[in-house]
């Protein structure tokens, strides 16, 4: 099962290595990983998306909690939450299909952020499905390059 795990950590060197080691030692591939400061500058948040056996992942979460430098671990599995990912997609384009690309981008509320003679760069924000859907639409034009920030997640409501 796919898990989105949010980890609050001390903003120190070596913390990422400790976390990565836990997943690597069990042969889990991390689908995505996003790290950034929180509202408190000495605390960072890591959002990790990983697929694997539920029981083993529960164990991994306990072990994450046990690591020094880790303040809190939240698995969004059963709580209402939002996920966002940002992707930059460079698509082949020529004069004759540029307007079609602009239309597709509009439908997805994506932005064209760069244009050159033979390509455009599209920026899109959304959950995994939305980005996947845009990718499917763009594939026939020819995707030259793509990069993504990795998913970040936040629980809904006050908590």
């Amino acid at each position: 099962m796919r898990h989105t795990i949010s980890v609050l950590v001390e903003n120190k060197f070596g913390v990422l290595a400790r976390i990565a080691t836990l997943f690597a030692a069990r042969g889990f591939n991390i689908d995505s990983l996003a790290v950034g400061e929180t509202e408190t500058p000495d605390i960072s948040r890591m959002t990790i998306v990983v697929r694997g056996d539920d029981r083993i992942l529960e164990q991994v979460e306990k072990q994450l909690n046990k690591l020094l430098d880790i303040i809190k671990v939240i698995d969004f599995k059963e709580t209402r939450h939002l996920e966002r990912d940002l992707a930059l997609i460079k698509v082949k384009s020529a004069k004759n299909n540029r307007s079609e690309l602009i239309q597709i981008a509009d439908i997805f509320r994506a932005k064209i952020i760069d244009v050159s003679a033979d390509s455009v760069i599209i920026e899109i924000t959304g959950n995994e499905e939305k980005i996947q859907a845009l990718m499917n639409m763009l594939r026939p034009f020819g995707i030259k390059e793509m990069c993504r920030t990795g998913i970040i997640a936040m629980g809904r409501g006050v908590k």
Binding site: G14, A17, R18, T21, A25, L68
Partner: peptide, 10 residues
């Protein structure tokens, strides 16, 4: 610290 990370508590 890299080598001893998995064999220490911290």
């Amino acid at each position: 610290t890299g080598i001893t990370r998995p064999v220490t508590k911290h």
